[in-house]
Structure formats: structure tokens, C-alpha cells
């Protein structure tokens, strides 16, 4: 008996994989049904539906890059402190001192790549008309995921706390100041007042809520850090679950039911 057979016949192996190797048709079906990760897929798909020239694989790559970002992001969190005092130096240390300092690069370029792949995924879905009934709702979920991906990227942009970061975020967040009615330099905000007291001012408007202060500073860094590492990823993970579930339920990757 070879070592391979010994392992495959052991009680431990059999408790994990409760069927023979997927070499015949029956077991290739069973493996898809018994594995929690694989069962995101159906058991069989239309052949034309998985042709690379048709699907481009971009949705799958976006999900894979999300996983890459999660793993590298968690690793980076071990060395990064979101305070004015430490943030920049921690990034410097990650670049110059840490072993495998390439992690920050993986995280940043992975994020850029993810923005591109999610656009291309949307592009493909549009061009094959895959948003058409009965899959309208899932297209909407996808649009929200696109927005959240951009927000993830945007909040992450601030964390190195360098000149590139602070000014990109200053410019970006100042747009919130111009929100109609809710931003203190937005149209109509000056009309919202009780007597002489203005309701919307620089300490109460939409931008203040986003930054946690009146200027991009330590409070903002902390706020964006929490959004970037916890709040938005959780929302994205939840919506990805909905998105995948609906892909299955609305007809699968190969076309409508």
C-alpha cells in the first residue's frame, strides 16, 4: 500500500472528504455538493457560459483580489497605527525595515487592479445583456459593490498620511461640504436656520460627519481607518454573499434561466 493510499484510507481523511476522489462523474458531482466553498458553484454549467472569451473571468478575479486585500490588509494592520504621530513612520518602517516589505505593494497594487477588474466585470455584464430580467436586482447589488470598492480604495488612500494622501482626501471630502442642504457650502444650507442660528455650519455638516473634525487630521485618520478596515469590508462581504447567491438563483453565470 502506497503512502497516498494509506492517507486516503485513514479515518482522518475520510472524515474530511466523505467520498472518493472526484475522478468519475458521480464523485465530481458529490464534491461540488459536499464542500462549503465549492458549493457556491452549481454542479454543471453551459459550456458556452464558461468560455473565457465570453465571461472574461473578471468577476471572479475581483472576488479573488478582495481576498488578497483582506489577507494583506490584516497583515499590514499588525504594524500600522492610525495616529498622526505614528502613521507615516509605520509606513516607512513597512517599506524599509519589515521583512517581506512587498506586502504594502501587494495591497496597493491589488487595490488598483481590483478597481480595474470590477469595471471590466461591469462592462462585460452590460455587453452581454446579463442585467436583463430576471437579473435586474443583482445588477443593482453589483453597482453598490462597485461604489463600496471605490470607497474602500478612497479611505485607504489616506492611511499612509503623506502629501499624496492628505490632499487627495482634502479635495475629495470637500465635495461633501458642497452637499445640497447638508453641507455648509452647499446650495440652500444657509436657508436652514432658526432665527439667527444657522443649523448647518462647519461643525455640523455632512463633511464634519465624514471627517470627525473640521479639517483632515487625526480624527479623520482614525475614522477612515475604521471605515477601511472594518465597516466597509463587512458591508462588502455581506453584499458579496447576496451577489453570489443571486447569481445562482437567477440563472447562474451562463445565462438567464
Amino acid at each position: 500500500m502506497s503512502v497516498g493510499d494509506f492517507i486516503r484510507n485513514s479515518q482522518v481523511w475520510k472524515s474530511i472528504f466523505r467520498h472518493p476522489a472526484p475522478r468519475d462523474r458521480r464523485n465530481r458531482v458529490v464534491v461540488m455538493l459536499t464542500n462549503v466553498f465549492l458549493h457556491l458553484h452549481p454542479v454543471s454549467v453551459r459550456k458556452s457560459g464558461i468560455a473565457l472569451s465570453y465571461t472574461w473571468c473578471m468577476g471572479g478575479l475581483t472576488f479573488f483580489l478582495f481576498l488578497v486585500e483582506t489577507v494583506t490588509g490584516v497583515l499590514l494592520m499588525f504594524y500600522y497605527r492610525p495616529t498622526l504621530e505614528h502613521a507615516y513612520n509605520d509606513i516607512l518602517a513597512l517599506r524599509d525595515v519589515a521583512t517581506l516589505g512587498v506586502l504594502r505593494e501587494l495591497h496597493r497594487w491589488g487595490a488598483h487592479a481590483m478597481v480595474i477588474t470590477i469595471w471590466l466585470h461591469m462592462y462585460r455584464v452590460f455587453l452581454t445583456g446579463s442585467y436583463k430580467p430576471p437579473r435586474e436586482f443583482n445588477w443593482g447589488v453589483g453597482v453598490i459593490l462597485l461604489v463600496l470598492t471605490l470607497l474602500l480604495s478612497f479611505t485607504g488612500y489616506l492611511l499612509p498620511w503623506d502629501q499624496l494622501a492628505i490632499w487627495a482626501i482634502t479635495v475629495g471630502s470637500n465635495m461633501a461640504r458642497a452637499t445640497p442642504l447638508l453641507g455648509y457650502e452647499g446650495p440652500g444650507a444657509k436657508l436652514l436656520k432658526i432665527g439667527d442660528v444657522e443649523l448647518i455650519h462647519s461643525g455640523s455638516d455632512a463633511r464634519f460627519l465624514l471627517l470627525g473634525a473640521r479639517f483632515v487630521g487625526g480624527e479623520t485618520l482614525l475614522r477612515f481607518y475604521v471605515l477601511h478596515c472594518v465597516a466597509i469590508p463587512l458591508a462588502v462581504a455581506m453584499l458579496i454573499a447576496v451577489h453570489f447567491w443571486r447569481v445562482r438563483k437567477d440563472g447562474g453565470i451562463s445565462g438567464a434561466l
Binding site: 461643525g203 455640523s204 464634519f208 460627519l209 470627525g212 473634525a213 473640521r214 487625526g218 480624527e219
Partner: peptide
Amino acid sequence: TIRFLYPNALSE
């Protein structure tokens, strides 16, 4: 919750 996100003390 939204009100909670507005800090009451600022270090300016």
C-alpha cells in the same frame, strides 16, 4: 447613532 458620530469635543 448619527448624533454619536458627531464629536462633542474638538482639539483645535
